[in-house]
Each structure stands twice: as C-alpha cells, then as structure tokens.
Amino acid sequence: MVDNKQQWKAWLYLAPALVLLLIFTVWPIINTVRMSLLENYSGLRAAAGETFKFGFNNFIQVVKYKQFVQCLINTILLTVLTVPISTLLALVISVCLNSIKFLSRFLQTIFFLPYVTNSIAIGMVFAAMFNIVGSFFGTQNEIITTAGIINNVIEFFGGHRINWINAGSTYAANIAVMTIYIVWNALPFKILILLGGLQSVNKQYYDAAKVDGTSRWRVFWRITVPLLSPMIIYVVITGFIGGFKEYSSIVGIFGETMGPADASGRLNTMVGFIYDALKTNKQGRASAAALILFGIILVVTLVQLRWSKKRVHY
C-alpha cells in the first residue's frame, strides 16, 4: 500500500489519464443521459439557443419507431446466431490446434490473421464471394456475369445458385451471409483466448484421465470444457457485447444502405439506428437509443454472470 504521504504522488501520476477519461469518457456518458432526457433534443437547435423540456419522450419515440423494432430484431437475431456458433467452432478448433504438434504454430497464425485484418476489407471480400455481378467488359462487349465464388461452388456440386445479397434476395439469405461473415470474423479472438486457456490446463488431468481409460468425448465434455469454463464464459460475454454493437460488418457486406438494393435498411442494427439518428441531428433520440442498447447489454451480461456463477468453476 502507498502510505498517505505518498498518495498525492500516485494521484499526480494518474492525473493525465484521469483528465482524459473525464473529458472523453465520463462527461460524454453524463451528457448522453442529459440529452436523452431533453425532449426532441437537437444539437444544432440547442446551439441556436432553443431550450428543450425535460421528459421521457425520446425513449417513447424510439420504442414506437418501426425501424427501431427491426433494428432490435436484426441485432438480437445476429447475436443469438453467431455467438454460440463461433464459440463452439472456436472451441473445436482450439482443442484441435492444441492437440497437434506439426504445423500448430503455422496454423495458429493462419487462424489469427482475420484479427489483424480490417473488417471493412474482409466485408468487401465476403461481398465479392456472395455477389452476383455483371459487366460489359467481355470480348464482344456482351454482359459477363459471375454468381460469386460461393454460388460457383454450389453449382459445381449440382445445386442452384442462391441470390445472397443482391436485389430480390430474401431476408433469410441475407442473415445467412451475415452469420457466416460475423462468425468468421469473431473466430480469431475466441481461438486466441481458448487456446491460451487450454495451454494453461495442467497436463496431469489428462494423464489421470488416460490412466482411467476415459474416452476422448468424455475428456472433452467432463474435463476440458469445465476447466475452460472461465474462458468460455468470457468469450461468450464479450461475444454478446460485440454482437449487440454489430454495425461495421453490415456496412462491409451491404454498404451504407444496410440491406439489398431493393430493401435498404432491412439489416440495420441498433448501432446503425443510433448513427442514423445522429446523422439527422436527432441527438436526443440517438442518446435514448444508446441508453436502451446499454440497458440491454447490461441485463444480458448480468444474467450471464449470474448463470455462470453456478456453472463456472473456480
């Protein structure tokens, strides 16, 4: 412990960070609460000297807004789909990576690459993979179309091409593309955490299981998963938080229309809704939506932590 005489020194050293935190984190949070409680607050009109009356109108408006409900459904759907899939996949991949010796370092690097790649860039590549595009640049100036790599593969195996993301595509196809993309994008971080956890598990547990003739399946479910449970709950919670903040992945695939050309905004998310409100100078509504999102994340996280207390060991 720092004794009392030395405490001012500690505060002095903390001061630069604290000042920045106060200005850029604490104040914006307080300001968000303030703006959300001022009815129809708009930054521009506030600058012009207008005053706003206090009330919960922003929240009521947000919830009544049809677009908001769609955003909420999209967000929850994507989160609920991607978090379990990516967690399970990451778990399987980490266990496999941990059990091989040959190429394990190399494969770890490969699996980690998406983490250091810009998500918009990944989105563009994924869009190209799923996109059906035509152009006039053939030798006879005829229209050349490609159905995208994924459809080519499907057709190679005798299936029918699917309109994934273009005009006329179905909501289900859109969600499928987003799920694949988000899962792929989420894997590296989860693998990193779970692999780290696996490597710190005492090898003697496995030796003990081996002496007892435990089957691989039982070792996985009765030993590996319980011992990894703190890491698993960590990636699930951060996964849910990330899922509720989903935005740039949609932009990456569909662009700022947040949906296929004929149904723009169909895949908009909570964060997208907040951005839209900010763009149209409705800071009051944006703040209210942000606080609702915060409330949802808080409740979900608390529920998970409560649940994990019963299930997670240590």
């Binding site: 005492n202 003697q204 547990y205 030796d207 003990a208 081996k210 002496v211 007892d212 003739g213 009765r222 030993i223 319980p226 011992l227 449970s229 060991h313 240590y314």
Partner: peptide
C-alpha cells in the same frame, strides 16, 4: 488403462470442478 493400475500424481490432479 489396460494395466489395472492406480496412479496418484504429485499434485493429486483431482478434477477441481
């Protein structure tokens, strides 16, 4: 597992969960 042995490890390796 086929040797009919019991092995006690130095740090016991009891499953903590």
């Amino acid at each position: 597992e086929h040797r009919k042995i019991g092995l006690v490890f130095q740090n016991y390796a009891l499953y903590p969960h």
